[in-house]
Amino acid sequence: MARNKGNRSGGTPATVALDRAGVAYTPRSYVHDPAVASYGMEAAQALGVEPARVLKTLLVRVDGALAVGVVPVDRQLDLKAVAAALGGKRAELADPKDAERSTGYVVGGISPIGQRTSLRTVVDDSAQAYGTVLVSGGRRGFDIELAPGDLAAATGATYAAIARR
C-alpha cells in the first residue's frame, strides 16, 4: 500500500489528515445506492471485501460525553462494553444530528479519521486480526483501506472487545 500521492480521493478531511500524517492508505470508491439501508454492508459487497474487515463508525454518548466506537459492519456495537472500555458506566447511541455536527461528516459517511472534534475512540479488537481494514473515507461511496495500527494511531484509538453478533 503506497501513500496516496496526488490525493485521488477528492480530499476529504480523512484523506487530508492521513496525507499530513504520512500514513499509507488505499482509497476505495464504489457507486452508492441511496436506497440501501446498511451503508457498511453495501461497501463490503460493492468492494468485494469480507464484512469483518469493513468497519463502521458509530458515535455514542458515554456518561453524557460523545465518543466513537468502530466495529465490523456485520456486528453490533455492545454499548456496555464500549462504556466500560472508556471508563464509563452507561453508553447510548448519539443522535445522528449530534454525530454530524461533531464530526463534520454525514451519517453513512462518518469516518473515524479527520473528524471536526477529536473524540475518544475505541476500535473493536477483532480489527487487529487483519493486515488491512476499511473505514469510511468521509462520504458515502468512499472507503479508505489501511493497516489497523495506522487507524489506531490516526485516531488515538484504543482496542477493546466492543462488538457483538
Results as ranks from 00 to 15, higher is better:
126 S>I: 10
81 A>W: 02
109 G>Y: 10
160 A>I: 07
134 L>M: 15
97 K>C: 00
85 A>V: 01
53 R>D: 08
158 T>W: 06
107 V>L: 09
136 S>T: 11
93 L>W: 07
151 L>N: 13
45 Q>T: 14
120 R>T: 09
44 A>F: 13
143 D>T: 11
113 I>W: 15
112 P>Q: 15
151 L>D: 11
96 P>Y: 03
105 Y>N: 00
49 V>I: 15
108 G>R: 02
133 V>D: 12
158 T>C: 05
67 A>H: 11
40 G>L: 08
74 D>F: 02
130 Y>E: 05
130 Y>G: 02
142 F>Q: 09
101 R>Q: 05
105 Y>Q: 01
67 A>D: 13
44 A>Q: 09
65 A>D: 14
83 A>R: 02
125 D>C: 09
66 L>T: 02
74 D>S: 07
130 Y>L: 02
122 V>I: 15
100 E>D: 00
113 I>S: 15
101 R>V: 01
123 V>Y: 09
125 D>W: 06
78 D>L: 00
124 D>P: 12
109 G>C: 08
105 Y>S: 01
88 G>T: 03
99 A>V: 00
143 D>Q: 15
47 L>C: 10
88 G>S: 02
133 V>H: 12
132 T>R: 12
140 R>F: 05
86 L>N: 01
60 V>E: 01
52 A>W: 03
118 S>P: 15
62 V>H: 00
76 Q>N: 13
52 A>P: 09
135 V>G: 14
130 Y>D: 04
81 A>V: 02
155 T>Q: 07
113 I>P: 15
45 Q>H: 14
59 L>N: 01
106 V>E: 11
115 Q>N: 08
148 P>T: 12
141 G>F: 06
117 T>G: 03
113 I>Q: 15
131 G>F: 06
86 L>Y: 02
156 G>M: 06
129 A>T: 08
91 A>Q: 00
93 L>P: 10
152 A>C: 12
44 A>L: 10
92 E>G: 13
147 A>C: 11
114 G>F: 13
150 D>Q: 08
104 G>T: 00
48 G>F: 13
